[in-house]
Computed example of a mutant assay.
Amino acid sequence: MKRLRNPRTGIDQGDVLVFSDFQEGGEMWTGHGQREKRCTVLFSDSFASTPSVQISVSLWDIDTSVTARAEILAENITKSQFEIVFKTWGDSRIARIRASWLAIGELPYEDDWDDVD
């Protein structure tokens, strides 16, 4: 028999530099074609279940002489962490990207039992 209760909702948020490739001539600045960078983010505390994560660009430093092509998303979301994924392609030149994130999910209760098989 399962016990039902109203979940306690928690919010965690942050702002993180995903990469800075301009100063060191990194692939996002000097490369061509499909490229991606990943940045792992740890939550302040673990959620009781996988939270919903929203990502937005809070700073972008790009070359405006070519077309800017970009995608940013959250992948591999778990109770304790997720990855920010930034992708570009073609001749886009991206110097650096900073992303803001917001995670909303169920918080654990002090009296929760660990599932043991």
Rank of each mutant, 00 (worst) to 15 (best):
C39L: 08
G25M: 03
W60M: 15
A70Q: 08
A103K: 02
R93P: 15
P51G: 05
D61H: 15
W101D: 06
E83P: 11
R38S: 11
M28G: 13
R38M: 11
T50D: 03
I94G: 10
V57Y: 06
A70L: 08
W89L: 07
K37T: 04
A95G: 10
S49A: 14
S80K: 05
T50M: 05
L107E: 09
E71Q: 04
F86K: 04
N76E: 09
K87I: 03
I62M: 10
I97R: 08
F86R: 04
I104Y: 04
F43Y: 08
E75Q: 04
E27D: 11
I104A: 06
R35G: 04
I94F: 12
D91M: 14
I104S: 07
H32D: 14
S80W: 02
S65W: 15
E36H: 04
L73M: 06
W89V: 04
R35M: 03
M28Y: 09
S80N: 05
S49F: 11
A68R: 14
L59C: 13
D91G: 13
I84F: 00
K37R: 07
F86S: 09
L102V: 07
T88K: 10
S52P: 01
V41L: 05
I104D: 05
E106V: 06
R98D: 14
S46E: 07
C39Y: 08
G33Y: 00
R98E: 14
G90S: 13
T40P: 07
A70F: 10
W89E: 06
E27L: 11
A103Q: 03
A95Q: 05
S56L: 03
F86M: 04
I62C: 05
E71W: 03
T78P: 02
E75G: 01
G33A: 00
E83I: 11
G90I: 12
D45E: 12
A68C: 15
V53T: 02
I55P: 00
N76W: 06
I55T: 00
A103R: 02
W60I: 15
R98K: 15
D63V: 10
E27T: 10
F82E: 00
W101P: 09
T78F: 00
R98Y: 14
Q54S: 08
I72C: 08
I62F: 09
P108C: 07
V85F: 03
A68Y: 14
G33H: 00
I55Q: 00
V66Y: 13
